[in-house]
Design a protein around this nucleic acid. Structure first.
Lengths: 107, 107
DNA sequence: TCAACTGTTTAGTATATACTAAACAGTTGA
DNA sequence: TCAACTGTTTAGTATATACTAAACAGTTGA
């Protein structure tokens, strides 16, 4: 029995419509955009400008459940990673195109 | 004053997040998938297998307001067209990749 | 030991969404 | 003329969503 808290769906359980719905929120799209750009994991603290902690935490969970990110807890901190390899395998080219088309736009 | 009924947003008013939200519904995604595949306008009657007329009509409006399709009325019939040229100009490659990644999946 | 810290979860709320059923509007053809 | 036809709009409802505030849980360091 693995921990439920930070569990992400497996590759084949990632649904396109759930993924699109997750990315249809501007805050979540910005988070994914940042994660893709930096290419490494990022501490949640980096996203504090995007809103209140409790709200962001719920966005993280949404992104995780949609299969977009994984979350690693270390001490008091949480670190987010874009599941790029998995996403590229399941939906080739999708994340790149979406994020590229979101650059420089508000929403 | 042009008719409101079938008005679509102009190219620059198409928002990425609105577009993603519109496509995050399985019924609407199937409609767009079909429109992209055939490449021509399609009568609404072709989509009757996807649900009830009143519900579909509301999906058409959603797609139109998101900038994805235009609707032409002729007699008793309505015809839908994917705004492919506009979409390709505003979000290069996006529609193709999304639809390609939805092929052969339920959602 | 324990207060401060970081992030998550829960409760509550206002709004958006997807749907059905029924009313409606315009078109067609006998 | 008018009933059948095609699709849209409206009313109503059940559920989902995004958010805030407060409670909570685990970690850290003095």
């Amino acid at each position: 029995m693995t921990s439920q808290q930070f569990e992400s769906p497996s590759l084949t359980d990632i649904s396109l419509t759930q993924l699109l719905k997750s990315l249809s929120d501007p805050t979540r799209l910005k988070i994914v955009q940042t994660l893709l750009r930096v290419g490494t994991e990022i501490s949640c603290a980096q996203f504090e400008t995007l809103g209140k902690k409790s709200n962001l935490s719920q966005h993280y969970r949404n992104l995780r459940q949609a299969g977009l990110i994984s979350i690693r807890r270390e001490g008091r901190h949480s670190y987010l990673t874009l599941r790029k390899t998995d996403l590229d395998r399941r939906f080739p080219g999708l994340i790149e195109v979406i994020v590229k088309n979101s650059d420089g736009r508000d929403d």
